[in-house]
């Protein structure tokens, strides 16, 4: 026992070093951003409070109230556009047949306006911290957009703050399509330029041109279809592979994020339930 203590005393600093290195590696290799403990993120109460103070000082110089008001109005208008778009689609379908079922409500999406209190663009994995949390109705895996495009999805939610996985994070993949085309691909950041991302896995037969708009496909419960994401950049390479990988100039300016909207899908639970086959089939014909 004495020898053990002697050994420990002699190599104490190595033991301490190994302990801290191991602890750091555990945090480092826990790659799933949805599993980070809330306390260890910028959405924790203490971190949020620090950023809130910093944000209050900075936003004073950037006309915070005016921006928030404009953003709120934008959110209302955006919701209206989505509702009208869906209404038009319903009317189009009704023109073909009068037997189409019509939903009672087309208001699938609501928006929660939030302020960005922390944002990073130069790390390998970037996150955004918002000043709205569970008390305001924010839940994990809700989409986040700003006035120009998609920003990311909520990953950790505290009572007053939430953390968003930015589009500038390789762990985040966004299902997108080229506007007026039905072929979809996956948008992911390659870590080089915070104003650009890659649209991968786009089928080879897709017709596109540089400057075409890339929008969300709507193949998830997170973002509504048709939200602008970016434009295809000119590419002189010859594509020989079966799937295209295109460089996209993002609409959202991540270096100037200020006010954002959190997308609340009112039918999300039902959609997820259907997709995971947990819904009870109530159709009597199937019995």
């Amino acid at each position: 026992m004495k020898e053990f203590f002697e050994f420990f005393r002699r190599y104490c600093k190595w033991v301490v070093l190994l302990f801290y290195v191991a602890l750091s590696c555990i945090m480092l290799f826990q790659s799933d951003p949805y599993r980070h403990h809330l306390f260890l993120t910028s959405a924790s109460t203490l971190s949020g409070a620090i950023y809130k103070v910093g944000h209050n000082v900075v936003s004073f110089f950037s006309l915070r109230e005016v921006n928030a008001d404009l953003n709120h109005r934008n959110a209302v208008l955006e919701a209206e556009v989505l509702n009208l778009r869906e209404e038009i689609n319903r009317m189009k379908l009704a023109g073909f047949t009068d037997t189409m079922p019509t939903p009672d409500s087309v208001a699938h999406f609501d928006f929660i306006v939030a302020n960005v209190i922390n944002n990073s663009i130069h790390h390998a994995q970037n996150y955004v911290t918002l000043d709205k949390g569970a008390i305001d109705g924010v839940k994990p895996e809700m989409g986040v957009i700003d006035h120009s495009g998609v920003v990311g999805t909520v990953s950790a939610v505290g009572p007053h703050f939430s953390r968003v996985i930015s589009l500038l994070n390789p762990n985040f993949r966004l299902s997108c399509k080229i506007k007026n085309s039905e072929n979809f691909g996956s948008l992911v950041w390659d870590g080089i330029d915070p104003s650009e991302a890659l649209l991968e896995e786009l089928p080879r037969h897709t017709v596109f041109e540089a400057g075409d708009t890339v929008v969300t496909s709507g193949f998830s419960a997170v973002f509504p279809p048709g939200l602008p994401v970016g434009v295809i950049m000119p590419d002189n390479r010859e594509h020989k592979e079966n799937f295209f990988t295109l460089r996209v100039k993002l609409f959202a300016d991540f270096s100037r994020l200020s006010n954002v909207q959190i997308v609340v899908n009112n039918f999300r639970d039902e959609l997820v339930s259907v997709e995971t086959n947990n819904v009870v089939n109530s159709d009597p014909a199937s019995k």
Partner: peptide, 14 residues
């Protein structure tokens, strides 16, 4: 914790 870089700075600082 403040920068959402779990483990990166802890490891490098140690």
């Amino acid at each position: 914790i403040l920068s959402d870089t779990p483990g990166v700075n802890a490891l490098a600082s140690t």
